[in-house]
């Protein structure tokens, strides 16, 4: 399983006064099992990019190759693409519409043409996987759930389609810290249970450091860098030039290093960082 994007460009509103190049010459490759973070300033084109990956938007030029098929070409079955690539939009809870949570989650699997038994099975599985109690929520109205629960139910609606590639656009936007943590733990749990490609858009650099295998950095419609979190975060000044931060911990270590304390800066773990700083301070004292 893989996704390859080649020279992808997209222009919104071509031929109108507000014509805008939202994506320019984007190219990257993702492989099976990778957990990918997509970061970038608001308006940098992240949402536009992910909508191309399941065929909701068509590129003005370029190719999007999912498992060997170019999905940008006309004549590809959209339902087939959506079976392979699941996209959870930003604020997905605004798309809930059914009377009960179970029915809402069943919407996607039903559209795939599965039989009733399989649909039920998938609904149960998906709700459990996102961390909701199936028996407790299945007959409740999705509009009665709490904010975090609504979000989980909406995500379950896509997870139930069992996509090979799961994309989440800012899954934690507007949530309290508790729900934020639960959602990110859920994303990790889903990724670990499927070992497929998971892409998440985020502004939280701690999540990037903790979860991602690969980071895509967008700026003004272009792909700035691709690399492991360690590689990407080692360019602190370059990131801040495009309005992005490194995780607070790395920021601290970077400041210490600039201030003259010889520490390694590529550390994402709090305890490890503490040890590193203590070690460096001790060494300095001995001298």
């Amino acid at each position: 399983m893989s996704i390859e994007v080649r020279d992808l460009s997209h222009i919104y509103g071509q031929g109108t006064p507000d014509e805008q190049a939202a994506l320019q010459d984007i190219s990257f490759v993702l492989h099976g099992g990778e957990m990918v973070a997509l970061i970038g300033h608001t308006g940098s084109g992240k949402s536009t990019l992910v909508q191309h990956l399941n065929g909701l938007l068509k590129p003005n030029s370029g190719e999007i190759i999912v498992d060997g098929t170019d999905i940008a070409r006309p004549g590809v079955s959209m339902l087939d693409i959506r079976r392979h690539v699941g996209l959870v939009f930003q604020y997905p809870e605004y798309q809930l519409f059914e009377e009960t949570v179970a029915k809402d989650v069943a919407f996607g699997p039903k559209n795939l043409g599965l039989d009733a038994e399989e649909v039920d099975h998938r609904v149960r599985e998906a709700l459990t996987l996102v961390g909701l109690d199936y028996e407790a929520v299945k007959d409740r109205s999705p509009f009665d759930l709490s904010g975090g629960q609504k979000r989980k139910a909406a995500i379950a609606g896509v997870v139930a389609m069992r996509p090979d590639i799961l994309i989440l656009d800012e899954p934690t936007a507007g949530l309290d810290p508790g729900s934020h943590r639960e959602i990110m733990e859920m994303v990790k749990r889903i990724h670990d249970s499927t070992r497929n490609i998971t892409i998440f858009v985020t502004h939280d650099m701690n999540d990037v450091a903790a979860l991602a295998d690969k980071v895509l950095v967008m700026s003004r419609g272009r792909l700035l860098t691709v690399g492991s979190p360690t590689e990407v975060f080692s360019h602190r000044t370059q990131l801040s030039a495009v309005g992005l931060d490194v995780p607070p911990l790395m920021d601290l270590l970077g400041d210490l290093k600039e201030g003259g304390l010889p520490v390694r800066t590529e550390i994402f773990d709090l305890d490890e960082a503490a040890d590193e700083i203590c070690g460096a301070l001790k060494k300095q004292k001995e001298k």
Binding site: N54, L79, R82, G86, F89, P92, Q95, G108, N111, M161
Partner: peptide, 13 residues
């Protein structure tokens, strides 16, 4: 537009 796309992403036709 956004809602339509989101439901399409869930296979709505």
């Amino acid at each position: 537009d956004k809602i339509m796309k989101a439901q399409q992403a869930r296979g709505a036709d």
